[in-house]
């Protein structure tokens, strides 16, 4: 009997302690923000959305390679020798046209791994978090600032130059090959002469390169 009374007393006491706590909170201030009206100030480094400062990008593809989910899609075209793309604000020379620089934010896992390898610090996270879309394709952000006709032109030019280079290279290769052949012939001749002269080396090892 006494035990029951004691038990009842502790129950009531603990209940009233708890109710005291909630009563204090009832008149306490609220900790929430009324979201669309008030917004939380995100800190500077908050990771909410990827942004690329395309003017500084040198098209090195390091970010795309660092991405664990392959959400960065870069296509570059080498600039032709007659164009100077200038330098980035960090002083790195730009050598590629960025014909495509797409980031699929639907795939992005906000790990920040693409940010660290960037040599020009042109890809970074920005604290902007309100970018819902009705269509998933809306989450693919196109950062390349080249117009389609420009892309076509650049590509054509690059192809031409590449073809030219290829041709030149082939010519070089051919020349080199001819040179090599010529030299080898001479060598053979020389060796033939030598063997005639010495006339005793029958078991000479085969000459093979690389």
């Amino acid at each position: 009997m006494l035990n029951t009374v004691k038990e009842g007393w502790t129950t009531f006491k603990s209940i009233f302690t708890g109710m005291g706590v909630t009563m204090r909170h009832l008149f306490g201030p609220s900790v929430t923000l009324q979201y669309p009206d008030e917004k939380m100030e995100l800190p500077k480094g908050a990771r909410a959305k990827l942004y690329v400062n395309i003017d500084d990008c040198i098209g090195c593809n390091l970010c795309a390679r660092a991405c664990p989910v392959n959400c960065i899609d870069i296509e570059t075209v080498a600039a032709t020798s007659d164009v100077d793309l200038g330098k980035t604000s960090t002083g790195n020379p730009k050598r590629f046209w960025l014909t495509r620089f797409n980031i699929d934010m639907a795939k992005c896992m906000y790990c920040d791994l693409c940010v660290y390898p960037c040599p020009t610090d042109c890809i970074y996270m920005v604290p902007e978090y309100e970018y819902s879309e009705f269509d998933r394709s809306g989450l693919v952000y196109h950062f390349s600032n080249l117009k389609p006709e420009m892309v076509a032109e650049v590509k054509e030019k690059a192809e031409k130059e590449a073809a030219e280079k290829k041709r030149q290279k082939e010519e070089m290769m051919r020349k080199k090959a001819e040179e090599k052949k010529r030299k080898e012939l001479e060598k053979q001749k020389l060796e033939a002469n030598k063997s005639i002269k010495e006339d005793d080396s029958s078991s000479k090892p085969e000459n093979n390169d690389s």
Binding site: T22, H25, L26, F27, G28, P29, S30, V31, T32, Q34
Partner: peptide, 13 residues
């Protein structure tokens, strides 16, 4: 509202 205030929220606003 009471639930909100007790839980340091505002409830329906």
């Amino acid at each position: 509202k009471i639930a909100g205030f007790i839980q340091d929220r505002l409830g329906p606003m």
